[in-house]
């Protein structure tokens, strides 16, 4: 009798792993997007820049 390779349980685990991978990828994308947004909108201007204008 052959062993069934992909049991329903394996499919569920695979789905869970894919879901987690997508969530983590999404999280990285959000953090990256936030970083770009913060840097380009001038939230992290170095204090030196204000001294120079004075």
């Amino acid at each position: 009798m052959s062993l069934k390779v992909t049991h329903e349980l394996h499919q569920r685990r695979f789905g869970r792993n894919v879901g987690l991978a997508l969530v983590l990828t999404g999280f990285i994308a959000v953090v990256f997007g936030l970083t770009v947004a913060k840097v380009t909108s001038g939230d992290f201007e170095p204090p030196r820049a204000t001294q120079e204008t004075e």
Binding site: E8, L9, R12, R13, G15, R16, V18, G19, L20
Partner: peptide, 14 residues
């Protein structure tokens, strides 16, 4: 038990 007890991704989302 092991078959019904293991959650899928949707169960965590729920």
């Amino acid at each position: 038990t092991s078959q019904t007890g293991e959650a899928g991704f949707g169960d965590y989302f729920a």
